[in-house]
């Protein structure tokens, strides 16, 4: 703690305190804000409102009947889970075309997302938004870790830091993602990601994977700063810059004549 005390007047300290405050407030809000108990059954009104939202925000790419166009795939049969994932993570509506839709600012609130999902679900049978009992992350961390290493780590990296795919596509970082969205991604296989249906990874398996990822988010760094959990590349970069830099700095000081 002497390290902290010594730096309490450092100019960066106030920034850090502010940041910390923001993070804590945000975290508390997320923890305490009222949540939907479960994806409630959709009413006809929801479907109707969802259709309006769809026509306003999605139809230009997915077609007025959601049958797909050259710009976007058909949404018939993708289910509510796909909508909840794509819209809930801000990937859709797409702000700018690119090799892949990226996590973005969420533009629709929970109600709108639900209505849109209800409309898309009404187009054809598809996976529904999962129940919270399988997305809360109360699974077996160790089992989840093993499943993660077999099924996910090759693209998303051992700690879910993300990884490169071909031609500019990439597997995104999985850090600090809501359990529901992790679940929905496995279930629906968005974009490049393959599908992990319930016969491949059972709902409990999926919750184990979520438990593992949440543990990665929450566990203390056992050995200090984790350098982004990217493996030897960031370690090598650290050794070649800060590490050897400090040592050479000491050597220069040692070789210079004292005043």
């Amino acid at each position: 703690m002497s390290f902290l005390a010594a730096r309490r007047r450092h100019p960066a300290a106030i920034v850090l305190v502010l940041l910390l405050g923001l993070v804590v407030t945000g975290g508390l809000y997320t923890a305490l804000a009222p949540k939907d108990a479960k994806a409630a059954t959709a009413t006809a009104d929801d479907v109707k409102a969802g259709k309006d939202l769809f026509l306003a925000n999605c139809a230009s790419c997915h077609g007025t009947n959601a049958n797909g166009t050259a710009a976007g795939p058909s949404l018939v049969g993708v289910g509510a889970a796909a909508v909840d994932f794509q819209v809930g993570t801000g990937r859709m509506p797409l702000t700018q075309p690119g090799v892949q839709a990226q996590r973005n600012k969420v533009t629709m609130d929970a109600t709108e997302t639900k209505q849109l999902a209800a409309y898309v679900a009404s187009l054809g049978p598809g996976p529904a938004v999962p129940a919270t009992e399988y997305t809360n992350g109360n699974g077996n961390i160790a089992k989840g870790g093993e499943l993660f290493r077999v099924n996910c780590a090759m693209c998303h990296n051992f700690a879910g830091s993300g990884g490169a795919l071909t031609r500019g596509k990439f597997a995104p970082s999985l850090r600090n993602i809501e359990g529901k969205h992790i679940y929905e991604a496995m279930l629906t296989g968005p974009q490049s990601m393959p599908v992990f249906n319930d016969t491949n990874l059972s709902p409990q398996d999926k919750n184990d994977v979520i438990a593992y990822l949440h543990n990665v988010d929450n566990e203390a760094n056992a050995g200090g700063h984790n350098l982004g959990n990217l493996g030897p590349v960031s370690e090598g970069m650290f050794a070649w810059t800060i590490g050897i830099g400090l040592l050479i700095g000491a050597a220069v000081w040692l070789g210079r004549k004292a005043a």
Binding site: M1, F3, A220, N221, A222, G223, H225
Partner: peptide, 19 residues
């Protein structure tokens, strides 16, 4: 654990021993 600036939440014993 201890929360350090830049480093984040870290094992207190490890950091204390290293420093």
């Amino acid at each position: 654990t201890v929360t350090l600036p830049l480093v984040g939440v870290t094992n207190a014993l490890h950091v204390a021993l290293g420093v």
